[in-house]
Design a binder for these strands. Sequence first.
DNA 1: ATATTAAAAGTAAGCGGTTTCATGATTGCT
DNA 2: AGCAATCATGAAACCGCTTACTTTTAATAT
Lengths: 333, 333
Amino acid sequence: MDKQTVTIYDVAREAAVSMATVSRVVNGNPNVKPATRQKVLDVIDQLDYRPNAVARGLASKKTTTIGVIIPDLTNSYFSELARGIDDVALMYKYNIILASSDENHDKELQVVDNLTAKQVDGIIFMGNQVSKDLRDAFNRANVPIVFAGSVDPEHQSPSVNIDYVAAVTDAVAKLVSRGNKRIAFVTGSMDESINKDYRLKGYKQALSSKRIGYDEGLIFQTDYSYKAGYALAQALQDVKATAAFVGDDELAAGVLNGLTDAGVKVPEDFEIITSNDTRFTEISRPTMSSITQPLYDIGAVSMRLLTKLMNNEEIGDKTVVLPYGLKKRQSTK
Amino acid sequence: MDKQTVTIYDVAREAAVSMATVSRVVNGNPNVKPATRQKVLDVIDQLDYRPNAVARGLASKKTTTIGVIIPDLTNSYFSELARGIDDVALMYKYNIILASSDENHDKELQVVDNLTAKQVDGIIFMGNQVSKDLRDAFNRANVPIVFAGSVDPEHQSPSVNIDYVAAVTDAVAKLVSRGNKRIAFVTGSMDESINKDYRLKGYKQALSSKRIGYDEGLIFQTDYSYKAGYALAQALQDVKATAAFVGDDELAAGVLNGLTDAGVKVPEDFEIITSNDTRFTEISRPTMSSITQPLYDIGAVSMRLLTKLMNNEEIGDKTVVLPYGLKKRQSTK
DNA sequence: ATATTAAAAGTAAGCGGTTTCATGATTGCT
DNA sequence: AGCAATCATGAAACCGCTTACTTTTAATAT
């Protein structure tokens, strides 16, 4: 039944060398006479030998596998990052164990322990709350971790990001400069550091620099979904907001359509700027103005950084900040 | 530096039993006296012992890891499936090695060999072209494979799908029944079996049953992207199409916006039905009518099926067909 | 009590590689 | 030609766990 798998031992026997030698040629160790190497290579070819990565992992303590923790696979922001990660991982011959966390604390913990058991060589983390427990789990894993498109409020772990504070400041300032006085701030939970410590800071900064008062009533926390945004339309009108900064594109699309369906004209009566410049910004009508981020690059750079860390290469700053921009589309005047 | 990891041997020593016994309690083997079990459990707790999954994998030849091959992570269709897969995988304690194929033949081959080397216990494949080489690679892997939301034209592998032919027939028939005579068929490459053998068949079936001639000129092959769809607007008008069936939602959104921007009114002058009922159908304006598919379930059922296969459980039909529907939204009259 | 059987625990052989160390074969240099 | 230094190879321990097989202990029967 189980077709006999060919092992390094079979190759050794067939090539009349020791398994050590086979191992050397497989791993490109230079200390092998060309003639021997060729002989072994021939046998490998002939037997269709393929090294068993599990055995190799046990012996060498390197699995060439990394863990990627992602809050939501179906969220474009994260899946774009994941694509960048994946491409670079492939480039460096790492496999990815993907683990969804749903931003759920227990699940994150569980997932990290899982990855640890599987002996991954490194971890890329997306998510914005790092509890003490999670930090402990990270440490226990004893492998490098990189935060991708996610902030580590305590700056302990390497991360790749844009300057969220500045980006949001710019975005909101833009809204202010168009005469908006009541600008809503719509994001996910304030438990997330990115919202509480970065975006909100940018929002407040923009307001105060233009001498506009801060109004709690304009702050909306919800989940990152179209539905949630759509449902917010009424509330937004109730507080007499004339513009909104939104922390997620799908959420923004919901807000946009909710308002439009309620008869509010965007951008004439209400302006919207969103955050991630994903495909939703082009698909919605009107299209949505947005902060622009190099999503793919954030992922790619994170992974590249991780490879360096895994190789103990010297790296400069552990926090890399990529450039952002502001793209005007139809949802702002 | 490297904190000493605690092994099964440490636990054995500390608990004054053999490693076999420790292994038994870890694996829930009943042949252990309760008192002994407790003692071992205590030591495990005290030492914070965690079994090394790699070693376990080597010894037991089971990695509790499966491979998932996905053409494009950022395509909502696939990421929704992936979510279903992921949830069920978690439920059964499997980890997922995610591998992007980009529908690229060589990459697929490479990826399967990779997964094989990593000794995954099973594979879920998404994609629609299965070459002889790929089939060989599948066989070489020597583990069960399930096609999720993807057809196996040769019906060799288990798969979970909807009835694409019937679904497209219904969709196109709907268009015909509204008086459309020139209905475009817009999908990805005809090299993909799902397009060539299923969707096109449904399309033709619907036409011929209503005695409408088949016109090559109405068939459009492109890639599954918003841009591609947008670019098609002119061509669609040139062939005087008044409706279109589209095989992907993002592509459909492109077609929709392209036409709209060109001054064509949807649905008044042009009707569109798309295929996957992803979130794009709700976000676009007008919203898009679509075939509905239980995306999450397709993924979930695929994974469940795979677990059965991996356990050598008896299964009924290797091909499971889930129900589809048709959802009318604003892009059709 | 003693023989019989079942349950609990231990021994040790792998799983398929990597890697350290020892040894034999080459090469270089005087 | 003779000896040190270098290169190529092999032997074997080890990575951390599972598991078949054996032995010891406990339970039941006679």
